[in-house]
Amino acid sequence: MPHETRRPDQAVKQPATGGGVVFDRVSKRYGDFTAVNEVSFTIAPGELVTLLGPSGCGKTTTLRMVAGLEAVSGGSIRIGGVDVTNRAANERDVSMVFQSYALFPHMNVLENVCYGPISGGAHKARARELARDKLRMLGLGELEQRLPSELSGGQQQRVAVARSLVLEPAVLLFDEPLSNLDAKLRRRVRQEIRELQQSLALTVLYVTHDQSEALAVSDRVIVMDGGRIAQQGTPHELYEAPASRFLADFIGDANLVDGRVISAGSGARFEAGAVAVPVGVGGLRAGPATLALRPHRLRIVAAGQGLFDGQCRRADYLGSHIEYLFTSPWGELLVFGPADGPTCRRGESVGIDFDADHAIVLPR
């Protein structure tokens, strides 16, 4: 893989102009099938919002309606305060970075980035000036004569970003932009995208199915399920306070235990499998409930010293931590332990403990 050229430190820091996006009760139907069902959200100028969800949830269709690549069946879309619901894609002042990059293989880097302004009627000299400015901004100034086949995956991704930025859109759209990169390069490029978005105050709508990617790059995340918004909020809000079993299971790892809240208020307790433990439930009433426990919130203690005991079935060393699987009165529990801490052997019995404030109780 060719060496990754790093972008210069804050070469250009001129905030992008342009307004935000307002999606107002937008629907998309294909015959009898509703892909997006009365979805509403707002993206403020300079904000990066991610649409996250499993395959078929409607996130890509939503992105394509913002871009003007899919017609709206109902509702309205405004960009920068202007109603663009019925406008063509080339009349919306948006630019998209595609999953496949879509670089012209016979054109060098500079020619690829120039293509948009030139096809839009810009003078060739002016188009090259704009393209070189964006390439320098992304640390690609020395690669402008290379063909796409001579670039690494990360460099090709940045060329695709430069090609979109050169059009100076009001809104930049990303469609699964990192899915073709390996895990280590994906982390590096997502950091570069985030730094660029923040330094230029770009308004961005970003689509991914990768939860860690969404949490890392976003000001706000909108989780979609079945064509509707399941929940939206900051990455911290979605991870620490999911609104449903689906959200708790989809955002990060979680152990889900079905049971009952048997008392409410400050002395609330959750009961399942003949084990009752104290929990914080907020305004949740007594009755059927699901307890969501993040694996890193569970603690391994000596047998008989925790809330209940478990038996180790598996211990996988992953470098940064050890991933344990325990059998317990609450079924199988996934627990993350420190790599440099005491370890459990297969078949060993231990106590399992957690703080009441870290238990997420969901109505069922």
Rank of each mutant, 00 (worst) to 15 (best):
residue 364 R to T: 12
residue 176 E to W: 09
residue 70 E to Q: 15
residue 233 G to C: 01
residue 159 V to S: 07
residue 270 F to D: 07
residue 102 A to T: 10
residue 256 L to H: 01
residue 78 R to G: 07
residue 120 G to N: 13
residue 41 F to I: 09
residue 241 A to T: 14
residue 81 G to M: 11
residue 319 G to Q: 11
residue 35 A to P: 11
residue 354 F to E: 06
residue 61 T to Y: 05
residue 289 A to T: 03
residue 66 V to F: 04
residue 125 A to S: 13
residue 9 D to E: 11
residue 105 P to E: 10
residue 193 I to Q: 13
residue 357 D to K: 12
residue 353 D to I: 06
residue 239 Y to C: 10
residue 49 V to S: 10
residue 248 A to Y: 01
residue 184 K to H: 13
residue 10 Q to W: 02
residue 212 S to P: 01
residue 71 A to H: 10
residue 107 M to G: 06
residue 235 P to I: 11
residue 204 V to Y: 05
residue 149 S to Q: 10
residue 294 R to L: 06
residue 346 R to F: 02
residue 160 A to F: 11
residue 208 T to H: 02
residue 174 F to K: 04
residue 37 N to Q: 11
residue 273 G to I: 02
residue 139 G to T: 08
residue 38 E to T: 10
residue 62 T to V: 05
residue 47 E to F: 10
residue 311 Q to T: 15
residue 72 V to Q: 09
residue 211 Q to S: 01
residue 358 H to K: 11
residue 101 Y to T: 09
residue 361 V to T: 14
residue 260 R to A: 14
residue 23 F to P: 03
residue 77 I to N: 08
residue 102 A to C: 10
residue 250 F to I: 13
residue 90 N to G: 02
residue 364 R to L: 12
residue 151 L to E: 12
residue 105 P to M: 05
residue 228 R to F: 01
residue 283 G to Q: 14
residue 72 V to D: 06
residue 94 V to R: 01
residue 305 Q to I: 00
residue 233 G to R: 00
residue 120 G to L: 15
residue 336 F to L: 15
residue 102 A to K: 12
residue 339 A to V: 14
residue 57 C to R: 07
residue 248 A to S: 10
residue 103 L to N: 08
residue 336 F to D: 12
residue 144 E to I: 15
residue 335 V to L: 14
residue 283 G to Y: 00
residue 203 T to V: 14
residue 246 F to I: 09
residue 57 C to M: 04
residue 269 R to I: 00
residue 291 L to H: 05
residue 58 G to N: 13
residue 232 Q to N: 09
residue 61 T to C: 08
residue 102 A to N: 11
residue 100 S to V: 05
